[in-house]
């Protein structure tokens, strides 16, 4: 009965290892939420941060994070869609394709601080974007592109080849098949990939410290002119994000309540990322049902 005993041992070990992972994750999230949540209040979310006095909030940082995220997704989605479609549908197995794949892999394993410093040298200094949302979102794009391209390529590849044949055999051109059959079928996967990557870049700090900057100047939420200096939509203003804010109050914060701010901000960050993650699943399912008419 050796096989049966070994099977039991293996099952036990696997369950044990999984519990360790789950335990670590839960205690981490639990710790952050328990220490942070009590200080998260309506006031905390909607007042501006203070540099020297206690009682500052995170409204600008929260908005900056979201705005940066949207801008960087706006830049990276079209590019990675193109790259993903190319790699999945058009790329032939030759040296060019493998060069592209290798570059993507290298890019995806770059430490984000390297991307941040690269962004600082090239975008902030060389192209004179200064510390700005634009520079930050381009840096985030560098971070995001490889992951997004991979997940889009994977989603497209997971569509059955039978569907391609069906499309082509109906007299659709290759592009019509991709556009009308393959992409809709891959869309839930693509969306999930986008939202998950959004969660990742939402919490990114290192790539932004030297690109989007560490200051959150006062801005007006009623000034809708994106070219105006004080407008909240101005992409050329420096913008400290939530993650950078957490880093900053912890390293050189001089506010008396730095502890509270950092733990409450962490809780907010975690909650937003959790929303992204659960939202990804929900939206992916919804879109699939909608597209496929299965009500």
């Amino acid at each position: 009965m050796n096989a049966r005993r070994n099977n039991k041992i293996a099952t036990g070990v696997i369950i044990g290892l999984v519990s360790i992972v789950v335990l670590i994750l839960l205690s981490l999230i639990g710790y952050i939420l328990i220490t942070g949540l009590p200080d998260v209040s309506f006031k905390f979310l909607f007042t501006e941060s203070k540099a020297f006095a206690a009682g500052g909030g995170i409204v600008n940082q929260l908005f900056n994070s979201l705005y940066l995220l949207v801008l960087s997704l706006l830049i990276s989605i079209p590019i990675s869609m193109g790259a993903g479609i190319y790699l999945a549908e058009y790329a032939k197995p030759n040296w060019l394709t493998s060069t592209i794949r290798t570059s993507i892999e290298v890019l995806s394993s770059l430490p984000s601080i390297v991307i941040g410093l690269f962004g600082y040298l090239v975008l902030v200094i060389k192209f004179q974007l200064d510390f700005s949302i634009l520079a930050g979102s381009i840096a985030l794009m560098f971070l995001n592109l490889p992951i997004l391209t991979r997940s889009i390529e994977d989603s497209i590849n997971s569509v059955s080849p039978l569907q391609r044949q069906a499309g082509l055999s109906l007299g659709l051109s290759r592009w019509e098949t991709i556009k009308g059959v393959i992409i809709p079928e891959a869309l839930p996967g693509i969306l999930t990939g986008i939202i998950l990557s959004a969660g990742r870049i939402f919490g990114e700090a290192a790539a932004l410290i030297y690109t989007a900057g560490q200051s959150a100047p006062t801005m007006s939420y009623t000034n809708f002119n994106p070219f105006s200096e004080t407008s909240f939509l101005n992409p050329m203003r420096p913008a400290e994000t939530l993650a950078v804010h957490i880093w900053k109050v912890n390293t050189d914060g001089i506010t008396p309540d730095a502890d509270i701010i950092s733990s409450a901000s962490s809780a907010v960050l975690i909650i937003v990322i959790l929303i992204f993650n659960f939202g990804a699943r929900y939206i992916g399912n919804r879109v699939y049902k909608k597209l496929t008419g299965d009500k």
């Binding site: 039978l162 569907q163 069906a166 008419g293």
Partner: peptide
């Protein structure tokens, strides 16, 4: 053309 495996689009 009709194939061996039924392959309707997922619509």
């Amino acid at each position: 053309m009709v194939f061996q495996q039924p392959n309707p689009f997922p619509f």
